[in-house]
């Protein structure tokens, strides 16, 4: 069974989602649900830490695409961090770095929500 887990926490008024495991068509609904809850609760400053994300398919990428517009309409953003080269390659292959800010460390992504600090 492909395992996928999401841990959530707040850091400097930014909501951090930590993804772990395999994000495919089977596990993508769990991430979708997490984004739906964040939007419902008006949490629009989101960092997705991909440190322990081992795998992503287009079903997983589709979840990011599905929510980015609503998040940005509400003056927020989804930023990504700590991607392994393997996961980054999939994002890169589809040109996602043009649309999403991807940082090496989570802290850098969080700081981008507070420019000047």
């Amino acid at each position: 069974m492909s395992e996928f887990k999401i841990a959530q926490r707040e850091k400097d008024a930014v909501h951090v989602l930590e993804l772990k495991g395999y994000l495919d068509a089977h596990t993508a609904p769990a991430l979708e649900e997490a984004f739906q809850t964040l939007l419902k609760n008006q949490r629009f400053n989101i960092v997705v830490n991909c440190k322990d994300l081992s795998y992503i398919s287009s079903a997983g990428l589709g979840v990011f695409m599905a929510y980015i517009e609503d998040v940005r309409k509400n003056n927020g953003d989804i930023k990504l961090s700590n991607m392994s080269p393997k996961v980054f390659n999939v994002f890169d292959l589809l040109g996602f770095p043009l649309l999403y800010e991807i940082t090496k460390e989570e802290q850098d992504a969080v700081k981008k929500f507070h420019p000047g600090k």
């Binding site: 287009s58 990428l61 589709g62 695409m65 517009e69 589809l94 040109g95 043009l98 649309l99």
Partner: peptide, 12 residues
């Protein structure tokens, strides 16, 4: 580029 700028999803 067009796909991303229109926030499309699916079909990839």
């Amino acid at each position: 580029k067009e796909y991303l700028s229109h926030y499309r999803h699916g079909g990839l």
